[in-house]
């Protein structure tokens, strides 16, 4: 936790800091006593000493981690499944000879790729369910706990 982070940088975790919106970028939660103190003209307090700010920074870090976790691995797996599908579609047009090659009995490369597609799809679904349970859901719950919020059930 770096106490020198200016308030305007805090809640813009994924974008550049937005000066026009200033410290109100994330609605409400960060209005710590420290902010009001400065409006009164009283000297700013050490942010690390303020439990509200500390908690907010914890939540930020957790949000950053969750943001990264919800993108990269998920994009990689989606990319793999979709690439296999497109490769299959391309090969069917471009290399019919290869697709017709026999592997075992009536099973040829085209049908084997088809089976592989079913297999990778099933694996991706299984992986994502597990990944959600083990990584995404606990991290989201942690962020909600830091923020003191309930799961949205609208």
């Amino acid at each position: 936790m770096n106490p020198s982070v200016p308030p305007s940088r805090r809640y813009v975790a994924w974008g550049e800091p937005d000066a026009s919106r200033g410290p109100d970028a994330w609605p409400g939660r960060h209005r710590s006593p420290q902010g009001r103190g400065r409006q009164d003209g009283s000297p700013p307090r050490e942010p690390g000493a303020d439990p509200a700010v500390a908690q907010q920074l914890q939540a930020d870090l957790a949000l950053l981690r969750l943001g990264a976790a919800s993108r990269r691995p998920v994009f990689t797996v989606t990319g793999a499944v979709v690439s296999l599908y497109l490769l299959d579609a391309l090969l069917a047009g471009a290399a019919p000879g290869l697709m017709a090659m026999h592997l075992a009995g009536p099973l040829n490369v085209a049908l084997a790729l088809n089976l592989l597609q079913y297999g990778t799809s099933a694996w991706a679904v299984w992986w994502y369910a597990r990944y959600g349970r083990r990584v995404l859901d606990p991290q989201a719950a942690q962020v909600r706990a830091w923020l003191g919020e309930e799961e949205d059930t609208r």
Binding site: Y11, V12, A13, W14, G15, E16, D18, R21, A25, W26, P27, L63, L66, G67, S70, A140, V143, R144, L147, E149, E150, E151, D152, R154
Partner: peptide
């Protein structure tokens, strides 16, 4: 951008 960051936070943590 700030608005996007808010929405993203809401999406990730699933809070309103």
């Amino acid at each position: 951008m700030a608005e996007y960051a808010e929405k993203e936070a809401r999406v990730l943590a699933d809070v309103d």
